[in-house]
């Protein structure tokens, strides 16, 4: 009951090292990191460039190709450049949410505001890094005074607000999912929690997709303006509207 009503895994302290208290967020994050990196290592250490490949390699290839195709769909020229960052965002959130939905007792790190803020902050930093590396400092900064210098405050505010929205959207969705499950367990212990967990599986994946796509859209808009002034605003607007 207590666990179910907890809003974030931050509040669950697993152990303490000296004055540092290690919450469930970190424990499950490390667990996920271990699982993902270890699994990837186990599979990719015996890769084959043959036409016949192992099923595990096939799955990994499908995932990697899917991510790359999605990034390409944003209209960037070299998807390999953005894939480690954007792909890891999507995979981390997706695996975390899936485990939370199918493993009882698993606390999704994405249900912690500190995790989502960290991820949003990473995007917030990555956008200018990618933008400057692709267009140069002047080219990147020029987008803040376009179409007119009058739009500068709006652009800066938008930069911050979309980062905050990114963090809270993910946190709110994951947290509300576990919260609803906890409340339903109290009201109707049978059947309904199962349906809600299924729903959580769906929303978890959708949230991972949204987070990844939005991150890519922000990066793409920062790197792509050189081709046309109007292009950088449009994908962001449509993607945000879709959410």
């Amino acid at each position: 009951m207590n666990q179910a009503m907890r809003l974030t895994p931050d509040e669950l302290i697993i152990f303490e090292i000296g004055s540092l208290s290690v919450s469930a967020t970190f424990v499950f994050t490390w667990l996920l990191m271990l699982l993902m990196a270890g699994g990837a290592w186990l599979i990719t250490r015996r890769l084959s460039s043959d036409v016949r490949i192992s099923p595990a390699q096939n799955v990994l290839e499908i995932i990697v190709m899917g991510i790359r195709d999605q990034i390409s769909a944003m209209g960037v020229k070299r998807p390999e450049l953005y894939m480690p960052f954007v792909g890891t965002l999507f995979l981390f959130i997706a695996v975390s949410n899936i485990f939370a939905a199918i493993l009882p007792g698993f606390q999704a790190p994405t249900g912690s505001l500190s995790t989502t803020v960290a991820l949003a902050f990473a995007v917030f930093v990555a956008v200018p890094i990618y933008g400057i590396s692709q267009r140069g400092l002047g080219g990147y900064l020029r987008q803040y005074i376009e179409p007119t210098p009058l739009m500068l405050p709006m652009n800066v505010i938008g930069e911050f607000s979309r980062t905050v929205a990114l963090a809270f959207r993910l946190f709110g969705n994951v947290m509300s999912g576990s919260l609803i499950v906890g409340m339903l367990l109290m009201l109707a212990p049978f059947f309904f929690p199962v349906v809600m967990r299924l729903l959580g599986l769906l929303t978890g994946l959708v949230q991972a997709y949204i987070f990844g796509v939005l991150a890519m859209v922000y990066i793409a808009s920062a790197t792509r303006v050189a081709r046309g002034e109007s292009d950088d605003v449009q994908p962001e607007a449509t993607a945000t509207k879709a959410v």
Partner: peptide, 14 residues
């Protein structure tokens, strides 16, 4: 943690 995961996945997956 996230940056470490990015590096790990880049190293072992992508």
């Amino acid at each position: 943690n996230f940056l470490i995961l990015v590096w790990l996945l880049k190293r072992f997956l992508y």
